[in-house]
Design a protein around this nucleic acid. Structure first.
Lengths: 155, 155
DNA sequence: CCAGACTTAAGAATGATTATAGTTGTGGAG
DNA sequence: CTCCACAACTATAATCATTCTTAAGTCTGG
């Protein structure tokens, strides 16, 4: 559940380094919010972070939690689980397949691989619960978005 | 992009079979909504399905689209992409890891595997765009939910 | 110490999804 | 083929999470 103390310290250090490098101010709020996410392994949502941070900083606002989390996300200090900020998407393809998802535009394409279908999960996973499906998610930037991003560079 | 005609027909047949078996009424709306999802490979969201179905059934309501999609989901005829119905969750673990997600309660746990980190993706994926990260998502039912679901059955 | 970046507070706005209430249509019975 | 009960539909209003506004006060880093 909890992340090791040393690991948390390392993350905090990295956090401070990045904020300084980016010229972003180091406020308690930001520290406490990041620490809270860094110290737990249970992928909390904004509301949960808010509740926990409140214990140390009774006056934080939910708004700040949201703003900070997205800031941290933009700085590469945290990531979101699953497709962020997106609406729910549906899929009628019931056969075993995997996904390539573009982080910029959300473009998603199925791909197949008998190789991947044979994936062996570590034993530790079995102890977590009953496994129903396993699929590989590849995050990246689709061709379209790559093109549109470097319209000048031709070197 | 588009699914083969034969494949679509098969899905439609399966769809009708399941709805009859479950004693759920076969309405045009449901047929058109399912057909729409079945015939495309681009994982549309409810709004997109709504817009497309509208062309054939100008009076459908967005509400029906939502209700139907979740119904189809419950019947196992479609699945959702990424985390369904959930709030955005954040993760400060930047090292390569994978996830086990409980479909009932949303419980999510990281797991590691040097094996999985070495996954070889098929060439077809490279042509889709630039790959940034690959991770395995295991869906299932966590221990807690398994316990709570069969409090009586002991056979 | 100061400027400007940040935060708080309290609303209000947005956008996706869901509930309510009254109307319509499906599918089995006759 | 017609009728009826009730499932399902439409339209509208309500929710819920998230974001934005404004105004005033606070804190960080130079």
């Amino acid at each position: 559940m909890k992340t090791e103390k040393r690991e948390v310290e390392e993350r905090m250090t990295h956090f401070e380094t990045v904020l300084r490098r980016e010229g972003v101010k180091l406020t308690h709020q930001r520290m406490e919010i990041f620490r809270e996410v860094a110290r737990t392994g249970d992928h909390p949502d904004a509301e949960q972070v808010f509740q926990r941070v409140r214990k140390h900083l009774p006056t934080v606002s939910l708004d700040t939690v949201y703003r900070t989390l997205w800031l941290l996300n933009d700085l590469g200090l945290v990531t979101t689980l699953g497709s962020s900020r997106e609406r729910t998407r549906f899929d009628a393809n019931l056969s075993s397949h995997h996904h390539f998802v573009c982080e910029q535009c959300g473009f998603t394409r199925d791909f197949y691989s008998t190789e991947l279908d044979k994936i062996q999960l570590p034993d530790s996973v079995d102890s977590l619960g009953e496994i129903e499906a396993t699929h590989v998610e590849v995050r990246g930037v689709c061709r379209n978005c790559v093109e549109n991003q470097k319209p000048k560079t031709q070197s």
